[in-house]
Structure formats: structure tokens, C-alpha cells
Amino acid sequence: MSLYKGIFKRDMHIAFKQKAELVQPLMFLTMVVTLFPLGVSPSPDTLQRIGPGVIWIAAILSSLMAMERLFRDDFQDGSLEQYMLSGMALPAVSAVKVTVHWLVSFVPLFLLSPLLAMFLNLTVDMYIALVLTLLLGTPLLSLIGAIAVGLTVGLQKGGVLLALLLIPVFIPLLIFATSAVDSAALQLPYHAQLAIIAAMLLLAAALAPFAIAYSLKVSQN
């Protein structure tokens, strides 16, 4: 157990040494959100209507940019080989790495979310729903994303390919998350949507670590 704590500490330490890589996706997210009032309409009603979708789409796109970081350095400098030769369980190692990735790339998003909600004129109910969907949905992004990162990490130009692989897979999450916020806007209950996202998260949490470990092995071959 202390071994996995060691990985956690090391990865956190490395992540905070590369602050630029943490901040840039968030800046990208803010800028994408800014484009919508300018490109669609600044009217408060319109913004409120498209707001949840805009925030979620921007979150997915920015997560795609930060995703590659997950295994890139470990693959390139050979740390991954050493993990595999240490006799540690690779699914557990991947789970720890995904957790660190979620903490460093999505938790700052929560700090940013009040600002985004204000930009897009979300009501308080909508904001609460948005935070809840982000809380359940973003770990899902990290878990599923890590499988695709594991597969593409050995390729020279994996960036766009990663997006091609992941965007279709993220569509159900987008649908349920935005619909939860829409329901909140109409003062309707949205437990169903949250429950579905939670179910998807549990499924991914159970299966993804093994898929990630398998993908990393394929990349090593």
C-alpha cells in the first residue's frame, strides 16, 4: 500500500513541477467558453440555454489536451518499463496514475466553475447540478481517456488520433450531463441522469484499470 502512496506522491510532485501543463488546458477551456457569447449571442436567455452544453463540451475538449500527459513521460523515459519489471500490479498502478491525473487536471476546473457559470448566466440550481455532473463525470473522462492514451502513447503523433478515438465514446456522458443541468433549470428532478452517470462511472472504474494495463502492455510490445 505504501508503494502506491509512493507513486501518488511522486506523480503529484512531478505534476506540480510542470505547472504550465496544468494551467494551459484551463486557459483553453475559459477561452472556448468565451467564444460562444461572441459567436452565438450574448443574450442572457440564449446563454442560459446553451450554457451547460458549452461548459461540458469545453471541458471534454480541454481534457483531451491534458490527457496525453497521463503516460507520455513515463513511456518516453522508460519509467513504465521499470514499473512493469517491479512486479507491481499494473492495473493498480494505472488506477493510482488516473487518480492523480484527475486530481491535478479536473479539480482546478471546480475552482474555475463559478466564473464559467457567471459568464453563461446559469442559475444557482443549474450551477449545483453542473458541479454534481462534473464531479461524477470527469473521473469517467480520465478513466476512459487513459485507455486510449495507453494505446496511442507509443505513436509519434497521437494527439489528434486520441481525440478521434475518444469524442464518440464521450457522447453519452455529454448527453446525460447536459440534460441533468437542463432539468435543474426547469426545477425538475435530475436524479435519474446522475444515477446513470454514476453507473457508467462504476462500470468504468471496475473495468478501465485492466484495459489500461493491457493497452500499456500492447504499447510496450
Partner: peptide
Amino acid sequence: YYHDLFYLGHKSGTNGSL
């Protein structure tokens, strides 16, 4: 096996920022 093995490949297995 891994208890008894030391492997050094082309990649050094060290993180540059540590």
C-alpha cells in the same frame, strides 16, 4: 523472476524533473 532481475534498456527509466 522480477525479484532477481535487473534490466537496463535504451531508456534510462529516470524522470527528468526529479
